[in-house]
Each structure stands twice: as C-alpha cells, then as structure tokens.
Amino acid sequence: MSQSAFATALLAPDAPTPPGLSDPEGRPAGKRFDIYRNNVVTSLTAALETAFPVVRKLVGPTNFKLLAGAFLRRHPPRTPVLMLYGADLPGFLEAWPPARTLGYLPDIARLEQALREAYHAADAAPLDPTRLAALAPDALMEVRFTLAPAFRLIRSPWPIHAIWRYNTEPGCPKPGPKPQDVAVLRDGYDPEPILLPDGAVAFLAALATGETLGTAMETATAEAPEFDLGPLLAQLLATGTITELETHA
C-alpha cells in the first residue's frame, strides 16, 4: 500500500482503514489504525491549544477542539517545525461560520501568532541611546532606524489589547468598544503586547518601512495631532526595539 493512501485515510475520520494493514491474527487493523489517526489529530490540536490560549478561552475548549480539527485538516503543517504552526488560523477564522458572531477572533489570533513569532525571532543588540542623544535636532529628524526582528505591529478595528488582557490577567477591566492597535515588543526574551496611543501605529509602520524619524512624525501627527513622540521613543529604546540607526550624512 502507498503512503498516499495511508496519509489520506489518516486525515479523513470516516474513511475506511486502508487494506493491507493487520493485527497479529491477520484481521484488518481497525482500531490499530485509529491510533495513528488519533495521534495526528491530538498532537496537532495540542500544538494549536498551546499556541492560541486566548482564542481557545474565547470559543471554549470543546469548540476549540472542533475548530482545531477542521483547521488542521484544511491546513496541515507544511514543515516539521511546529513552533509557528497556525499562521493560517486568522484567515481560517474569518471564514469559519461558527465564529461569525465573534468578529474580533481573527485579530486575537493575529496577536497570539505575533507573540509567538516575537518569542522565536532573532536576537539583536539594543541601540546605545547615547548615539541618539548625540545627534543635533535637525539631524535627529533625518535618522532612520532598524527595528528588532521581534517587533510586530497589529492594527485592529476591535479592542484587542483589552480582550487579550481580560483573558490572560485576572482582575483586568472588561474591554470597552474603542478599537486598539498593538505593538509587540520583546524586552530580553519576553514579548509583550503594548497598547498604542493614537498616531503611534502610523508612526511605527513608517519607521518599520525605513522612513526617517521626521517623516514618521509627520505621518503620525497627520492622523493624531496630539501624538507625543517622547514616551514612545523612550519605550522603544528601553525595550531594545531600536537596534541600529542610520544618519543621512
């Protein structure tokens, strides 16, 4: 028998056991084949449960098993490295009928995936802040930054930061209605989702695409005139999110 027939039957719960597989008495393998079937589904479901704890909490453990079963059959892992398995889950959730009433679910999955990506991202030495302090004000606005490989940005029309916190930290207030943008910053080895003030997501997106600090500022203030660079820049430096700078000279 071919491995194609074996693999196809593994992922089809109702398919008959492939022929040519037997127990010690020569009877068809039956439940013995189901062990492999169960191992595949159980181990990949467990990987997704570990990866998306907040999505699991939001839909409930029983529904998550159904969700994981449907997802892993539609999107089996493409590589044996499972640390980032589930990148297709947000898109899958958008089209998953039972989740239609939970519009924020795909963005919560995006946030959880971003946290995993950040956890495994390459290490990078933080920028020495004195290099920035040494620049003249006009040169400062011409500077371009390299951001840490762990940096991630998520824009959302939903209050994803509050929903995430409400489901991970006991005693957090219930989420309000306001949309929230989030940056994932990794200070040392622990990624944190940071709630961004108005204008900051535009600012960070501009920096991440290699715009100068001045251009990023203009983008941010066009969106939010009250945008305050100081605290955000301090946070980026303190968390090692800026790793290099390039001056125009």
Binding site: S4, A7, Y36, V40, P76, P80
Partner: peptide, 17 residues
C-alpha cells in the same frame, strides 16, 4: 518512520512495511 507526505507534515511517527 515517516511523517511527511504531499498532504503536509503529519506529526506522528508512521510505520513502514
């Protein structure tokens, strides 16, 4: 064992004849 086929990575150590 085998674990990968056209369908993807199956995350189990599958048997061989």
């Amino acid at each position: 064992a085998w674990s990968t086929h056209d369908v993807g990575f199956l995350n189990d150590l599958l048997p061989l004849p």
